[in-house]
Design a protein around this nucleic acid. Structure first.
Length: 588
DNA sequence: GCCGTTTTCGGCCCGACTGTTTTCAGTCG
């Protein structure tokens, strides 16, 4: 059973401790230790209770004796005396002051000690009355910036992140706009977009160019059609706000320093910190400009990113793994897994046509799949009960199968079209087609679309019943989340994944950018419980079949390899996986 | 407070930018 404190909740406590210790003026290395553990815990996908019970908490990077004890205390009692003592000294309501731009630990400490300010409201009043500008470390400009910051804070304009798919569309517009600009030797996204994080804070774009070309490139960038305002612009760095609110940063570097610059701007911050620490152990100091020998002071330029990692004795680390977890250690040992790639995907296992709610005829969807080099696809139009999606009755299914047969004949040397369904899981966990009909599909994909707000136990039971059905091969977009409009359904995912593992039901990683479901954390959790996966586009239009790479990226972020993904196998191997499972269950 | 292919003690990423400064502190990524 999952407890009520998960690793995210523990991370939150340690993050708060770090921030409070900063205000208190504690040793900055101790503060970093807490911050690092918080970051590790946010990335931790193993069940923290299990680690605790097995005495393996120290496996979490950054957890030593003292922090291990604190985690134990939290898990046992739900409280932490150290934290409570700390907040007597430094009240935690001060933390909201960190939300205001320009307010860091030193200034928070100052306003508290000199003016007794503890909240944004009190800070705003003092700023309006002009009381801040005379404090040490403040001044008229800081005071004005703080007032502007509070305004943005109140209007909730700060720090909103964009779904990866949206940020990616903006990126395409920018790349398209820049592609004919003279002087660009290389251009590449960096930051969390390059790491394919499911949400993106801002768009970092790196350009390699000689210094003379900088002005022209900058001008091209700031003349973007989708640009709202230029925030700042210099010879090497330009920041703009795009219409819609996303910030985009352009950075121009000389080609000889491309490797270190791309490495630095890709991050994550935690990854960079650990990488730079590892560099220092080899007497090399790493910055975005170069590796510098700390003894001789000689600069080593790295034109390629591979050079940076290579010089540090590591294999190149895929951006999706650069979160400061275990990747640097494994790269040093040259033991990084070979991650799955989009080119490894042999078949797409969720495709809709205008037989149900897809926008295009079956034939066009199949032709696109051929063009993308798929060797098999599964047509998964909706089942009859999903009226809003023109779900198929048995009669219409028969007609559809006739068309599939014809297409299979016509395209026999190119692709195999499998007959499938995205069958509705009803509120009680039963399926929307009867057993006999289900048996006639090549592959059955089950999905929950309605009543996602059932109570937790009911919903869990419903999923388990569906997964345990002997004819269900794949569970589509398992948690039902939709970016910006629907959170993951509340259910006991650990139990559900355990059932999927024991029944051999494959879990879908839905590549559609509005879903990305399972999330990377859930993939990892399911993987640890022994599940296998498929990655499907859930395409409802031709072009959406190209979005496979979004799903593959999430799989990569969860460290999956070809072996973990059923549709990265040949058709025979894939069907073997499915048959084996059905066989086992038919014997019951 | 953590950590160890030079260390169980003595280290702990690096730089840009801004504004308040008289040589640098604070914030940010």
């Amino acid at each position: 059973m999952e407890g009520n404190i998960d690793s995210n909740a523990v991370a939150e406590i340690f993050e708060r401790i770090a921030l409070l210790l900063e205000i208190k003026g504690e040793d900055r290395f101790k503060i970093n230790a807490y911050r690092r553990v918080a970051e590790s815990l946010r990335n931790e996908t193993r069940d923290i209770y299990a680690l605790y019970k097995e005495g393996r908490l120290k496996e979490i990077p950054g957890v030593g004796k003292a922090i291990e004890q604190k985690i134990c205390e939290l898990l046992e009692s739900g409280k932490l005396e150290f934290y409570e003592k700390l907040t007597e000294e430094v009240p935690d309501k001060l933390l909201s002051l960190y939300e205001i731009p320009e307010m860091g630990p030193k200034r928070i400490k100052t306003v508290r000690e000199m003016l007794g300010i503890e909240t944004p409201e009190e800070l705003e009043r003092a700023a309006r009355e002009g009381k801040l500008k005379d404090l040490p470390g403040f001044g008229p400009k800081v005071e004005r910036k703080i007032l502007e910051g509070i305004k943005a804070f109140k209007e909730k304009r700060l720090s909103s992140r964009f779904p990866l798919g949206e940020a990616w569309k903006y990126l395409q517009v920018i790349l398209d706009h820049m592609k004919n600009c003279e002087g660009i030797i290389a251009i590449c996204p960096a930051g969390s977009l390059r790491r394919m994080k499911e949400t993106v804070g801002d768009l970092d774009i790196l350009v390699a160019a000689e210094a003379e070309a900088s002005e022209k490139i900058t001008n091209t960038f700031t003349n973007l059609g989708i640009m709202d305002e230029v925030i700042l612009s210099g010879p090497t760095k330009t920041s703009v706000r795009l219409k819609g609110g996303l910030q985009a940063d352009l950075r121009i570097v000389e080609p000889a320093r491309w490797g270190t610059a791309l490495q630095y701007f890709t991050g994550s911050q935690q990854h960079n910190i650990l990488l730079r620490e590892a560099a220092l152990k080899k007497n090399l100091s790493l910055s975005e400009y170069a590796l510098t020998d700390t003894i001789s002071g000689v600069e080593i330029l790295c034109p390629k990113e591979e050079d940076v990692y290579g010089r540090l004795g590591m294999s190149w680390i895929p951006p999706e793994l650069r979160e400061g977890t275990a990747e640097i250690k494994l790269a040093l040992e040259k033991k990084l897994p070979k991650l799955i790639e989009t080119e490894d995907i042999k078949g797409d296992l969720q495709i809709h046509s205008n037989w149900s709610d897809g926008k295009r005829p079956l034939k066009e969807m199949v032709e696109k799949a051929c063009e993308l080099g798929r060797s098999y696809i599964l047509i998964t139009d909706h089942s009859q009960g999903l009226g809003v999606a023109k779900g198929l009755t048995p009669d219409r299914l028969t007609q559809q199968w006739r068309e599939i047969d014809e297409l299979n004949e016509m395209l026999a040397d190119k692709i195999v079209i499998l007959k499938g369904t995205e069958v509705e899981v009803k509120a009680d966990g039963s399926l929307d087609y009867d057993y006999e009909l289900l048996k006639s599909f090549d592959v059955v994909v089950a999905a929950v679309h309605s009543n996602l707000r059932q109570d937790r136990d009911q919903l869990t039971e419903r999923y388990i019943r569906a997964i345990s059905h002997p004819l269900v091969h794949i569970l589509a977009h398992p948690t039902g989340r939709l970016f910006g409009s629907r959170e993951e359904a509340e259910a006991d995912w650990e139990e559900i994944f355990q059932t999927a593992a024991s029944t051999g039901t494959l879990l879908e990683i839905n590549a559609h950018p509005s879903r990305l479901d399972l999330s990377e954390k859930r993939i990892r959790q399911a993987f640890n419980l022994g599940c296998k996966f498929v990655i499907s586009t859930d395409a409802h239009d031709i072009y959406e079949q190209e979005y496979m790479f979004f799903g593959v990226a999430q799989a990569r972020r969860a460290w999956l390899t070809v072996e973990d993904v059923a549709n990265a196998q040949s058709l025979d191997a894939f069907l073997g996986l499915i048959k084996k499972r059905s066989g086992v269950h038919h014997e019951r």
